[in-house]
């Protein structure tokens, strides 16, 4: 009996090993590519963050000088707070705008129009990111459409300062992420069983109660996935703040970019990049429960 089991077990193990070897064969190109061009550069970058700039080269003696530098100079650590502030505003406003829109698309628009509405809703996605930021500059500039309209209606007497400000950055971001969040929330809402809402109504829930007790809790995974994506892209973006926000209140990516392109201080830029990655990691841990739940 036991010997029979063993031979059987051996054959099974052999088959499993052959299967695993094949799988690893398929996986290795992508894994090696990611190791070579993603992990290795990041490892080098992390070690650079403990070096210091000297002349045009680097001093490879390990030190925390860059991190200390970041902690004491307000223009640097202040940029992190600017980033966090803009990112949180963007994420919050985008969710508040995207949720009703996604809700209407999913439950109120007749089925035959739904696809068209969705395609239209994400159409501006396909303009180039840079061009879209520039287009918002056109809209918000002192002589732009918004100011001209407000002057014409008579709400204001002279142009309001919108472009090159934090408001402009948040506006541009909100535009982009409202589209993104509409997609993730919509995708979550349409895959919900329509009978959940029927059941709630049948058991006596009013429209608001059924939204509060059933729909909202069930759409949290879609919101969290979208919010996390928004957070990650928004806090790491250089283009939108640079074009729309101007150079007065820098965000972290602008400060990093500046260290690379103007000061050629790669070690300091590395240290600030590490800090940015840590912030994202914290956000990931905070939302990990929901991100994983969505995969179930």
């Amino acid at each position: 009996m036991s010997s029979l089991n063993e031979t059987h077990g051996d054959a099974e193990r052999l088959a499993a090993r052959r299967d695993a070897v094949r799988g690893i064969g398929f996986l290795s190109p992508a894994t090696l590519w990611t190791m070579a061009f993603f992990v290795a550069p990041l490892v080098v970058m992390v070690s650079y963050s403990f070096f210091t700039k000297r002349g045009t080269g680097v001093d490879t003696a390990l030190s925390l000088a860059n991190y200390e530098h970041f902690a004491v100079r307000e223009v640097l650590w202040g940029s992190l707070f600017n980033s966090l502030e803009i990112t949180l505003w963007t994420t919050g406003i985008s969710i508040l705008l995207a949720y009703p829109f996604a809700y209407v698309l999913a439950f109120r628009v007749p089925e035959r129009w739904r696809r068209l509405c969705l395609v239209l809703a994400i159409l501006p996605f396909w303009t180039s990111y840079i061009v879209r930021s520039y287009a918002w500059l056109l809209v918000l500039s002192p002589t732009g459409v918004v100011n001209q309209s407000l002057l014409w209606i008579g709400l204001i007497d002279e142009p309001v300062r919108l472009a090159y400000s934090r408001i402009a950055t948040v506006m541009g971001f909100v535009h982009f992420f409202t589209m993104l969040l509409t997609l993730t929330i919509y995708a979550n809402l349409v895959q919900l069983n329509p009978r959940y809402r029927l059941a709630a109504a049948d058991l006596g829930a009013s429209g608001w109660q059924s939204f509060y007790y059933v729909l909202l809790p069930l759409s949290i995974p879609g919101i969290v996935v979208g919010a996390f994506t928004t957070f990650v892209i928004c806090i790491g973006d250089y283009i939108m703040p640079q074009i729309l926000g101007g150079n007065r209140e820098l965000v972290l990516p602008q400060a990093i970019f500046f260290q690379v392109s103007r000061n050629a201080d790669l070690p300091l830029a590395s240290a600030m990049s590490v800090i940015l990655m840590l912030v994202v990691a914290v956000a990931y841990l905070a939302s990990a429960r929901w991100l994983r739940m969505d995969r179930l």
Partner: peptide, 28 residues
């Protein structure tokens, strides 16, 4: 349906997946 003296057991049951058994039963 909210104001009808009827209640329905759905074909796929439509039990709310984010609630415990007790919360489902006590929903009404």
């Amino acid at each position: 349906p909210v104001r009808r003296p009827t209640a329905t057991v759905f074909q796929d049951y439509a039990l709310f997946p984010h609630m415990s058994v007790g919360s489902n039963v006590g929903f009404g």
